[in-house]
């Protein structure tokens, strides 16, 4: 209670509410429209708690009753990626978007690089299809017990851990000028995932298959090096280094494929 009052005092006197401008869309096909909301200010509130407040009391700025806003969320600690949306023009996670750090009116839009399901909810299914395409897993199933895999050097493991932080949030796709409805680009995250799984000693057994996936439709060929992804990624994944690394790996693979060999891996 006292904490609440302190926060109110810290705010400039009349600003007891937070203004939101939210882009809404009722169905995947219908036209988007803007709706504004005035939400009572609370100390340390984030975009999600404001959306929850609107859900509790779905009345817009003009005092009209409206439908609650739809949005996705899960972990609430920036590890699942579900709550990504465009906040004040930049794609990011709404669970870690603190109202105190945003200029008002706070504008929320869905990430339009993806099909919009409703309001701020988008369909990121395409990203999971890409992960299947590049075989973003370590194959350990066999007809017999394969036993323990080779050990990974500790320093390499620590480095690979950084790449494994990707939460498939879609921010790097939203940021990329080459991911749009005129291209099939899988997006930077998929390229970095190939690097991650090719680094793993067991994963490396399918190295050539993953590289080949990057050398077809929607793969590396569609990157134009704007390098927005590395700026946008909330997990600080070195996406552009991964892209250049996979560029080098596919250059080598291309020569191997062309001049042939009696085996593909190594």
């Amino acid at each position: 209670m006292s904490e609440h009052q302190t926060a109110v005092q810290e705010q400039a006197a009349p600003a007891k509410t937070v203004l939101f401008e939210i882009q809404r869309q009722d169905t995947p096909e219908s036209a988007p429209y803007m709706e504004s909301f005035e939400v009572p200010y609370k100390a340390n509130m984030n975009v999600i708690s404001a959306l929850m407040e609107i859900r509790r009391n779905p009345v817009n700025k003009n005092g009209e009753k409206t439908t609650p806003i739809n949005w996705d969320m899960n972990c609430l600690e920036e590890v699942c990626g579900a709550c990504s949306m465009v906040i004040n023009g930049r794609p990011r996670q709404s669970c870690t978007a603190l109202v105190d750090q945003l200029t008002q009116p706070i504008k929320l839009e869905p990430m339009r690089t993806f099909p919009v399901v409703r309001d701020l909810v988008v369909d990121r299914e395409g990203m999971f299809d890409s992960l299947k395409k590049i075989k973003a897993w370590i194959p350990i199933d066999g007809t017999y017990d394969l036993g323990e895999g080779p050990r990974m050097p500790e320093r390499k493991r620590q480095w690979a851990y950084e790449l494994s932080k990707c939460m498939t949030c879609g921010v790097c796709l939203e940021a990329c000028p080459n991911v749009n409805d005129q291209t099939n680009f899988m997006g930077p995250f998929a390229i970095s995932q190939v690097r991650l799984f090719n680094t793993h000693p067991t994963g490396a057994q399918n190295k050539d298959e993953r590289l080949s996936a990057l050398m077809t439709d929607g793969g590396l060929g569609e990157c134009g090096n704007s390098q927005n992804c590395v700026v946008a990624c909330p997990k600080g994944i070195p996406l552009t280094t991964s892209i250049a690394a996979m560029n080098r790996a596919t250059t080598v693979q291309m020569f191997k494929n062309f001049f042939g060999s009696d085996h593909m891996v190594d």
């Binding site: 023009g89 940021a175 134009g224 090096n225 946008a232």
Partner: peptide, 14 residues
């Protein structure tokens, strides 16, 4: 087929 977005990311590379 590129959708330029220098308004959103005004970085040198973009």
């Amino acid at each position: 087929t590129s959708k330029n977005n220098v308004q959103r990311y005004g970085t040198f590379r973009n």
